[in-house]
Simulated assay, not measured.
Amino acid sequence: MIVKKKSAESYTVMNELVLPNDTNTLGNLMGGRLMYWMDICAGMAAQKHCNRIVVTASVDNVSFKQPIKLGDSVMIEGKVTRAFNTSVEVRLDVWAQNLPAGTKIKSNEAYFTFVALESNGQPVPVPELVPESEKEVALYDGALRRRQLRLILGGKMEPADAHELKALFMASQED
């Protein structure tokens, strides 16, 4: 039986309060602490999709767009954007909220990849993802190109074999 799941089924929200132990000398949240929280949130989203133990396989470029300050609430949203054979890609959006001021600013975004494992530690196939909205379809389509780039950078794929990634560049040259 082939199992298919929707992206919404993996949706996970995690909230943390930035305390003094979480900050650097400028009073900003340390990047390592944020990445730790992001890994937890992404892992929960991946587990919801796979119904398996998952391990982090890669983290794409984590963009730090806006500092998060001491006392801010951090809201991390994650959901699976595509399932491959034994792995899933999870997109995260990070928001900094100053609760007394009532502000909410997007601070970070990233893509994490997880591999689903059997109890013996061997990779296991994951359920197919069925995108529903236009945004989900765009993220789903882009995931294949992001995966090919990850594989090239990791030395696991030759650039000449990245057909979807090459097509993106060839299409832009035709314009």
Results as ranks from 00 to 15, higher is better:
125 P>T: 14
82 R>L: 08
87 S>H: 06
161 D>P: 02
114 F>K: 04
124 V>E: 12
60 D>W: 03
71 G>F: 12
6 K>P: 00
46 A>V: 03
70 L>R: 12
2 I>V: 07
14 M>H: 12
164 E>H: 14
27 G>I: 10
26 L>I: 02
163 H>F: 14
174 E>T: 04
81 T>E: 03
12 T>Q: 04
16 E>N: 06
143 A>V: 10
155 G>F: 15
116 A>D: 12
25 T>G: 06
43 G>N: 08
163 H>E: 09
170 M>F: 00
12 T>Y: 02
93 D>R: 04
32 G>L: 15
14 M>W: 03
170 M>C: 03
41 C>Y: 03
121 G>R: 09
96 A>E: 12
39 D>T: 08
81 T>W: 05
3 V>D: 14
173 Q>T: 06
171 A>T: 01
81 T>I: 14
39 D>G: 10
4 K>L: 07
106 K>A: 07
19 L>P: 00
81 T>L: 02
71 G>R: 10
87 S>W: 01
99 L>C: 01
153 L>V: 11
101 A>N: 07
125 P>W: 01
131 P>M: 07
19 L>I: 06
125 P>S: 12
5 K>N: 05
151 L>H: 04
62 V>D: 10
69 K>I: 03
139 L>M: 13
89 E>N: 05
151 L>E: 15
139 L>E: 09
159 P>W: 09
5 K>L: 06
42 A>T: 09
2 I>F: 01
5 K>V: 04
158 E>K: 09
175 D>C: 08
103 T>D: 02
116 A>C: 06
48 K>C: 05
15 N>G: 02
137 V>S: 01
94 V>W: 00
25 T>V: 13
71 G>A: 11
145 R>Q: 14
59 V>Q: 06
16 E>K: 09
143 A>N: 09
29 L>T: 11
54 V>C: 15
3 V>C: 03
59 V>H: 08
129 L>A: 08
102 G>E: 06
65 K>H: 13
121 G>Q: 11
170 M>P: 00
38 M>Y: 14
102 G>D: 03
18 V>S: 12
91 R>D: 01
99 L>F: 00
152 I>S: 04
128 E>C: 02
50 C>T: 10
132 E>T: 13
165 L>Y: 12
81 T>A: 10
76 I>G: 05
71 G>D: 11
127 P>R: 11
127 P>G: 10
15 N>R: 08
85 N>K: 07
40 I>Y: 14
162 A>T: 06
135 K>D: 07
138 A>D: 05
142 G>K: 02
19 L>W: 13
18 V>L: 11
101 A>Q: 09
114 F>T: 03
153 L>F: 14
74 V>R: 02
70 L>S: 10
125 P>K: 06
40 I>P: 00
150 R>K: 00
173 Q>D: 07
147 R>N: 09
11 Y>K: 12
138 A>K: 14
